[in-house]
């Protein structure tokens, strides 16, 4: 630790941060917190209003129900021209100016001509796919690169059909949608954005883990020996190993199901009552998978356990 602090490599850190193709992700790391704050501030304003109206049913009957200025004499609608179009025009000018300045200030990268015989180290996908590339450390390519992206797309598409909560349609709120918002934010911020940030700034040559400020030394030796769960437990013989892995994997997934089930039933009875059986099962499945991924990451990073299920045909 001390030697790391002493040798904090500002140059390396600055180099990664200002790599032209990394500038967008630096920008995103500023924009996402800002808009999170902005959204949650709106949610807080609505939640205060909701609490007030719930406490005072008489007021709820007459209130205009928005935390914005209101006067009964005001029109409920505005003309698009000019009130919306001027905002759009302004936004277009600002975006254009911003892009022009960016394009004048910073050149798009261009490396040497493509050369199949000279591997780039590290070779990285574009930053917005680095979350998936980072998952390759923890899962075999057929899971990280094929199954999980499809689950993400399918899961996103399922959201409107499994979220049966009628509240919070068209306004920011946290109180009325705690469960949905936490689930989405966990998936988006942790499993997508954070992994992409790790893939961009933490993973150096050989896809080794370098803390910010560590020099990206391609010759660094890593003394990690990957183990598999069955080796830790001491199972031998491929049939036993395959059976053990199957039971372990399905067991873990089942346990995560159960965990999600108990939490939802105990803490969120309203939600539980609104969903039908199919919707509930899909929700539990998606939650179990969303928890399985970080669990597997922790097993690898913490205990160097690579696979929980080893078979002659595939590994998980």
């Amino acid at each position: 630790m001390t030697h790391m602090l002493a040798a904090f490599d500002w140059h390396q850190l600055l180099h990664i941060l200002t790599e032209p193709d990394n500038i967008p992700i630096v920008l995103m790391m500023l924009l996402i917190p800002y808009f999170l704050w902005y959204g949650f501030r709106e949610a807080a304003a609505h939640d205060r209003l909701i609490a007030q109206l719930e406490a005072d049913p008489a007021l709820a009957k007459t209130h205009h129900r928005k935390p914005y200025p209101y006067h009964p004499a005001w029109d409920k609608t505005l003309h698009t021209w000019p009130y919306l179009l001027r905002v759009e025009f302004l936004a277009a000018i600002i975006v254009t100016a911003f892009l022009v300045l960016w394009a004048v200030w910073l050149d798009a990268p261009l490396e040497e001509p493509a050369n199949p015989n000279l591997t780039m180290n590290p070779s990285k996908a574009p930053w917005y796919f680095l979350g998936l590339q980072e998952l390759l450390v923890y899962f075999d390519p057929w899971i990280a690169g094929v199954i999980l992206p499809h689950v993400v797309l399918g899961g996103l598409m399922a959201i409107p059909y499994i979220d049966t909560n009628p509240l919070g349609n068209g306004y920011y709120t946290w109180r009325q949608r705690k469960f949905a918002i936490s689930g989405y934010m966990f998936g988006f911020l942790v499993l997508w954005v954070l992994l992409a940030i790790i893939g961009t700034f933490i993973r150096g040559p050989g896809w080794m883990w370098f803390w910010p400020g560590e020099t990206w030394d391609p010759h660094r030796q890593v003394h990690e020996v990957n183990r598999h769960l069955h080796e830790v437990v001491g199972v031998t013989g491929w049939v036993n190993i395959a059976l053990f892995g199957g039971v372990a994997t399905l067991g873990i997934l089942g346990a995560l199901h159960l965990l999600a089930d108990v939490v939802i039933r105990r803490k969120m009875p309203v939600l539980f009552r609104q969903q039908n059986f199919l919707q509930y099962m899909i929700t539990l499945n998606l939650l179990a998978m969303m928890l399985f991924v970080p669990l597997k990451i922790l097993l690898k990073l913490g205990l160097n356990i690579k696979y929980v299920w080893v078979t002659p045909w595939f590994n998980v």
């Binding site: 967008p24 959204g39 892009l99 910073l106 917005y128 959201i159 409107p160 979220d163 919070g168 918002i181």
Partner: peptide, 29 residues
Amino acid sequence: NMHRWAAHAMIITTWLHQMRVFMTGSYKP
């Protein structure tokens, strides 16, 4: 440069747009 940076920016704004649609529950019926 414009093409490159606008492309990166579009990815970010799409994600932010989706986040706002989620936060306002706008995917509900």
